[in-house]
Amino acid sequence: MIELTEKELALGKRLAHVDKSVRDQAVAAIGQVLAQSGELTNIELLRHWKALFYCFWLSDKPLVQQELSMSLASLTLACKGSNSVGFAQAFWETLCREWFDVDKHRVDKYLLLARRMVFFGFQSMRQSSWDTRVVEGFLGAYQEGPINPSEQRIPNSIRSHMADVYVDELVRLVGEIRSTHDAPDVEIAKIPVAMLLEPFMRLIGTSSIRQMPVIVQTSVFENIVVRIAEAEERSNDQDSCSDGELETNNNSSVTDNQIANESLEDVQFLTDSIPEIKQRLLSVGSEKTTSSSGRKRLHMLYQALCDTFPAEETDIVFPKQIVKFAAGQQSCGYRPHQGRIWL
């Protein structure tokens, strides 16, 4: 159990104050501490997050929750130096520790906070110009916490939520870059998409948790393929419409893991990253820690991407037994993509 000092308890009372302006000032005060401090220990950052966690616990109205989730997650950008990685790691450690005490009325808002933390994690990596050490730091925090393939203390609901929102928030980041950056293509090209997906590849390759590899395959990798396919379909529909009139689908809806009306340009960075994603799948599949069944799954994903996005000069064709294994495991189901089959 984390014990708080008197100063931290006083700050905690301000964070839980009934007056919103007092709470906002307390959050800003923590931001100043994070911005001015040298390297903070994990215990110090856990203390900050214990106070922030219960500050968020007491937020009730939806608009207040949305605003506060943005304020808390954006503190990641206020952190000085390596504290940004430590701050994120402390959040995931706190969320996983406290998760089973979160009642059903508060689950949704903490899932929203987790989504915001994923987005601002990407923002922090971007702020470092995608420095390899920073990216590896965040990915290491994810692999120890919400994308840990085997730790029983990590709730599976957090693992699956992380898989649900990860690609969404990466696409959202690219959308922000496109709308605010003078040279968006140059900035977007710096994003190491395949490297960012590697923790999920390792989860598929090593996890013994029932159904978790299937969830990750669907929520992350199939999600990428479907987004590209739907963006291509929308682009083709627009090209086929005459006089500038666009067809609309009144039945379309936006779910937690969808961003509506993405254009082909919005997801082009995913398409461009497919060759490297393929190579990463092979690389992770060849690691000694990868299980036999996990290796088959990774090779199946590789083969599915090769079938969907063929590159004859570099693609490797695996034996049909792999595809039969994957189909027998009921992995992702079948989805058509321009006349080909996504498994």
Rank of each mutant, 00 (worst) to 15 (best):
E3L: 02
T5A: 09
R14S: 14
R14M: 12
A16M: 07
A16Q: 13
K20M: 06
K20V: 09
V22A: 06
Q25K: 08
Q25S: 15
A26F: 08
A26E: 03
A28E: 13
S37Y: 12
G38I: 04
H48R: 06
F53C: 05
F53Q: 04
L58A: 03
P62R: 06
V64F: 10
L75T: 05
L77M: 05
A78F: 11
C79M: 04
S82V: 08
S84T: 05
L95I: 06
R97I: 13
E98R: 12
W99R: 09
V102G: 01
L113Q: 03
A114L: 08
V118R: 11
G121S: 11
S124I: 02
R126Y: 15
S129W: 05
G137H: 04
G140I: 12
N148A: 06
Q152I: 14
I154V: 14
I158A: 01
S160T: 15
M162R: 05
L170E: 14
V174W: 02
P184T: 12
L196K: 01
M201E: 05
R210K: 13
S219H: 04
I224D: 00
V226E: 09
E230F: 10
E232F: 11
Q238W: 03
S242K: 10
S242L: 15
S252A: 11
Q258I: 13
N261Y: 15
L270I: 05
K278H: 02
K278N: 00
S283E: 12
V284E: 14
R297Q: 12
D307P: 00
D307G: 00
A311L: 00
T314W: 00
K320G: 00
I322F: 08
A327E: 11
G328E: 06
Q330C: 03
S331Y: 07
C332H: 03
C332F: 02
G333Q: 04
G333L: 00
Y334T: 08
H337I: 11
H337R: 12
R340N: 08
W342T: 07
